[in-house]
Design a binder for these strands. Structure first.
Lengths: 212, 212
DNA sequence: TAGATTGTTAATCGATTAACAATC
DNA sequence: TAGATTGTTAATCGATTAACAATC
């Protein structure tokens, strides 16, 4: 399994999105150029990125859409479904629990946890909600590697520690807290702050220009 | 208003987070080194990034934390609050409506919109929910530039078009749909897919290594 | 055949890191 | 004074873009 550049990895889902569209539109073949136009990525970039997936196109023709979808999904490991746990059944947690796209991207939430005793035992979107006390037991029984963290910022570190102590391998962190975990734990942050930083600044620049 | 590199911009909120912590811990001064350790960013990188905010530190001493916070917040325009509209009061929308950090980051949701007639007129977290038909009217009256998009993927483009038609300047897009808008509209995407791509791949690589 | 496309090598660009003089 | 820190210039690194030969 060779390394794929981080930025290539981040672009692959965009290509996939484009490919699904083209497929829905009834197309069978696609060129890097077409994908480039759709995704606003440079044509050569697309070609290079696709090369990382191992696909080989045919000159003058392009790529079979199906083959390309397969290759990218395989690259991202979105073919075989990984089970995961979600901790923190607030609005954000529920949004994810009801987000059907997740299973198309290789992730299935098989249990949710929340310390609110009123929720314990209930179901949401077909997923049972457990008290945090059951986390350890279920994790070891169910071979889960990934934890989704959607708790309030104040308890994020505590819950993350608990996840790690129980043997979780990777945390998808939706909280604004920078988690302090050992090197071997994989952490991916959904970073609203950095996105908002870019948005705010660009809006400010725009308004500034309009006024001068 | 000079340009700040995109990646610098994205790191500034991390520094801010660290600075708030240091401040809460009672510190008055901080060095780039300390921030670097906390954020896992290279020391020199931190120094360069801070330079973009215009602050000047004192050799051997470092920076005043308060000055630094001020400078970064100013850079990101998080000092003066921008009003914004949110469209799509599902779980994700509600999560944002209840997210108090937002106002600390210069954003206040002053109205929410949803086409579910049952919600029309009701309040959530003190924010009134309006039918989409009122969008245009309120926008022109209230001087709003930013729209938060938390609708289902299928209608994202339609609602975005509506926002743009009514004069919105920037869209913070929480849907997985790539919005097709004119050049002059600022779009910032919260891209769960690319984050999940990185997570999935890294987990797959890790498991692959463990098994070999 | 000619045009479109591929894959790849070379050139450019931008961002990160290293090195270092200045200094409270 | 010596160590720690700053700000800045130079070197390195990686990613993007340009150029081009190969080809169905």
């Amino acid at each position: 399994m060779e390394a794929i550049p981080l930025l290539t990895l981040k672009r692959l889902p965009q290509y996939l999105e484009a490919l699904y569209r083209f497929k829905r539109a009834g197309l069978k073949m696609v060129s890097a150029t077409k994908i480039a136009v759709f995704t606003d990525v440079h044509m050569t970039q697309v070609r290079k990125d696709l090369a990382y997936t191992g696909v080989v196109g045919t000159p003058k023709i392009g790529h079979r859409i199906d083959t390309l979808i397969q290759a990218i999904e395989q690259c991202l490991n979105w073919n075989d479904i990984s089970s995961c746990f979600l901790v923190g059944v607030g609005h954000l947690g529920k949004a994810l629990m009801g987000y059907s796209e997740l299973s198309k991207k290789g992730l299935r939430i098989i249990a949710a946890f929340d310390n609110n005793p009123e929720l314990a035992g209930s179901y949401y979107q077909g997923i049972q909600i457990q008290p945090m006390s059951k986390f350890s037991n279920l994790l070891s029984r169910l071979h889960v590697h990934i934890g989704i963290l959607t708790v309030p910022a104040e308890v994020a570190q505590t819950i993350a520690d608990e996840m790690v102590a129980n043997g979780i391998l990777a945390i998808w962190n939706f909280t604004p807290t920078k988690l302090n975990v050992t090197e071997d734990i994989i952490v991916e942050n959904i970073d609203m702050s950095s996105s908002l930083a870019v948005l705010s600044r660009r809006v400010a620049e725009r308004l500034h220009h309009l006024n001068s």
